[in-house]
Simulated scan of single mutants.
Amino acid sequence: MSPSASASPVYQEGSSKGPEKNVPLPRMPNEAKNFTEKGASSFVEYYFGLLNYTIESNDANAVKRLSSEGCQLCNRSIIDEAENAKKSGEWQVGG
């Protein structure tokens, strides 16, 4: 690898000693933007990947953009939990 090429950070699993590091942010597949049965299925897979990312990383920004403010489950169980854990320095191992 040349000196100018940058390697992607390597994902590191979490443990009782520390949280996951370099958790890859899922990318929404183009198919997930189509209003079809296959598009809906693709979006659901992406969204659940995003939920797991949020739980592992305590980064709720991406899931916030896709969740309705009125979704109590999204806010209380995922977004608020991740943000509170981030503030307090807590983590969950695995998604």
Score class of each variant (00 low, 15 high):
residue 2 S to N: 14
residue 4 S to F: 15
residue 4 S to Y: 13
residue 4 S to C: 14
residue 5 A to R: 15
residue 5 A to E: 11
residue 5 A to Q: 15
residue 6 S to F: 13
residue 6 S to W: 04
residue 6 S to H: 08
residue 7 A to T: 06
residue 7 A to M: 02
residue 7 A to F: 04
residue 8 S to E: 15
residue 9 P to D: 03
residue 10 V to G: 02
residue 12 Q to M: 15
residue 13 E to N: 14
residue 16 S to E: 15
residue 17 K to N: 15
residue 17 K to E: 07
residue 19 P to R: 03
residue 20 E to K: 00
residue 20 E to M: 05
residue 21 K to T: 15
residue 21 K to S: 15
residue 23 V to E: 14
residue 25 L to S: 01
residue 25 L to Q: 01
residue 25 L to A: 06
residue 26 P to L: 13
residue 27 R to A: 14
residue 27 R to D: 12
residue 27 R to C: 10
residue 28 M to L: 15
residue 29 P to T: 04
residue 30 N to C: 11
residue 31 E to C: 03
residue 32 A to V: 08
residue 32 A to P: 07
residue 34 N to E: 03
residue 36 T to R: 00
residue 36 T to K: 00
residue 36 T to Q: 00
residue 36 T to M: 01
residue 37 E to I: 13
residue 39 G to S: 10
residue 39 G to D: 07
residue 40 A to T: 11
residue 41 S to W: 12
residue 42 S to K: 02
residue 42 S to E: 00
residue 43 F to N: 10
residue 45 E to C: 08
residue 46 Y to H: 04
residue 46 Y to L: 04
residue 46 Y to S: 09
residue 47 Y to R: 03
residue 47 Y to Q: 03
residue 49 G to W: 11
residue 50 L to K: 05
residue 51 L to W: 09
residue 51 L to E: 13
residue 51 L to Q: 12
residue 51 L to F: 09
residue 52 N to Y: 06
residue 52 N to F: 06
residue 53 Y to E: 11
residue 53 Y to R: 05
residue 55 I to P: 05
residue 56 E to Y: 04
residue 56 E to K: 11
residue 57 S to H: 01
residue 57 S to D: 00
residue 58 N to F: 00
residue 58 N to M: 00
residue 58 N to G: 00
residue 59 D to C: 02
residue 59 D to R: 02
residue 59 D to S: 02
residue 60 A to C: 04
residue 60 A to G: 07
residue 61 N to R: 09
residue 62 A to C: 07
residue 62 A to S: 11
residue 63 V to T: 10
residue 64 K to I: 06
residue 65 R to H: 06
residue 66 L to M: 08
residue 66 L to R: 04
residue 67 S to M: 08
residue 68 S to A: 12
residue 68 S to K: 00
residue 69 E to K: 10
residue 72 Q to D: 10
residue 77 S to A: 11
residue 77 S to C: 08
residue 77 S to E: 08
residue 78 I to G: 05
residue 79 I to L: 03
residue 79 I to D: 01
residue 79 I to V: 14
residue 79 I to P: 00
residue 80 D to V: 01
residue 81 E to I: 07
residue 81 E to A: 12
residue 82 A to F: 07
residue 83 E to D: 12
residue 83 E to N: 06
residue 86 K to Y: 02
residue 89 G to Y: 13
residue 89 G to N: 13
residue 89 G to Q: 13
residue 90 E to P: 01
residue 91 W to F: 15
residue 93 V to D: 12
residue 93 V to A: 05
residue 94 G to F: 01
residue 94 G to Y: 04
residue 94 G to K: 11
